[in-house]
């Protein structure tokens, strides 16, 4: 057990290190963007003196590395910074958006992951059958069509034609849970469509990959049913690759939702990021990117740990 804790601690340390590197990259990338907030606000007509004064006021005249360490230090103290544009602390701005994004991601995951796993297992069980082929073709079509297209088709059919759901995913804090689910169904289904195929095909492939192993033949020769062979003998050994692909897709649901949020005008983190980039509101851009990085790294970390825990050789050493 101790060496597992050690392994987990090592992964965690590595995650923190990667996060540090990413924070440097984010800061540098933002620095490299042409034009800053001052240019964007004051426009071309501003005099040198006004620009200088404004930069001084925002602290943008100091060297980049000093601002980086200040930024990092503040984050460690829980101070995410101050939005240039909104003129208020970023936490106010970001937390609600983050909640919205996480809510949508969790919603989509709750639909996509069980369906993907179930269909993956079924496709493996009845591989090369009509069912398997149909599922595969549908999944491929879903993953190949761009998400905005899927979103607009869904909106057209279910919002415009049938009128079952609103076209825009507008939410407020005091909204009831059930109502929120109804409003968010179309964006959640859109996310499901684009992520499910990947998870399903990976589940199917990982299981089929195992079917040539001697212990599967042994299970057959013990007279076990096809279903039991897949579920009991193949699936537990396929956890590691499946968990990894699920983690990547969960990360995508949080980080990659920008397009979906824009289409449905959903007040999530992705939209905030897009707005902030066009406004040159750099402190917000940086924080949003950092949150995305944390999401990615921690989900992958979680997948790593799950893979370790699913390996009996590591869990039960000799």
């Amino acid at each position: 057990m101790i060496h597992i804790l050690k392994m987990v601690a090592q992964r965690l340390a590595l995650g923190v290190f990667i996060l540090f590197v990413v924070s440097v990259i984010i800061f540098m990338a933002v620095e490299l963007l042409p034009g800053d907030f001052v240019d964007a606000i004051l426009g071309q007509a501003a005099t040198e003196a006004t620009v200088e004064a404004f930069r001084y006021q925002l602290g943008l005249d100091r060297p980049a590395y000093i601002r980086y360490f200040e930024w990092l230090g503040d984050i460690f103290q829980g101070d995410l910074g101050y939005s240039f544009r909104a003129q208020r602390p970023i936490d106010d701005l970001v937390l609600l958006r983050l909640y919205n994004t996480l809510f949508l991601a969790a919603y989509a995951a709750a639909i996509a992951v069980p369906i993907a796993l179930l269909f993956g297992v079924l496709a493996a069980m009845y591989r090369n059958s009509f069912f398997d082929r149909t599922v595969n073709v549908v999944a491929l079509i879903a993953i190949s069509s761009p998400e905005f297209l899927a979103a607009y088709i869904l909106i057209f059919v279910f919002a415009v034609q049938l009128g079952w759901f609103p076209t825009l995913a507008q939410v407020s804090i005091d909204m009831e849970f059930g109502e929120r689910l109804r409003v968010l169904l179309l964006p959640a289904v859109t996310l499901t469509l684009v992520t499910m195929a990947h998870m399903m095909r990976m589940t199917r492939a990982s299981i089929i990959n195992l079917l040539s192993h001697p212990y599967i033949e042994m299970a057959r020769l013990k007279g076990m049913s096809n279903r039991r062979i897949i579920v009991r003998h193949a699936l537990p050994n396929a956890i590691a690759p499946i968990v990894n692909v699920v983690a990547i897709n969960l990360a995508y649901m949080i980080v990659g939702v920008v397009v979906v949020e824009v289409v449905f005008v959903y007040p999530g983190l992705g939209q905030l990021l897009v707005d902030s980039v066009s406004n040159r509101d750099m402190p917000v851009v940086q924080i949003a990117c950092l949150i995305f990085a944390v999401t990615y790294i921690s989900l992958n970390l979680l997948a790593d740990i799950c893979s370790v825990l699913s390996n009996p050789r590591l869990l039960h050493p000799r």
Partner: peptide, 14 residues
């Protein structure tokens, strides 16, 4: 019943 050549491979590691 069947007994295979390599027990290491014929037992399910999980």
């Amino acid at each position: 019943a069947y007994v295979a050549q390599s027990a290491a491979a014929a037992f399910n590691p999980a």
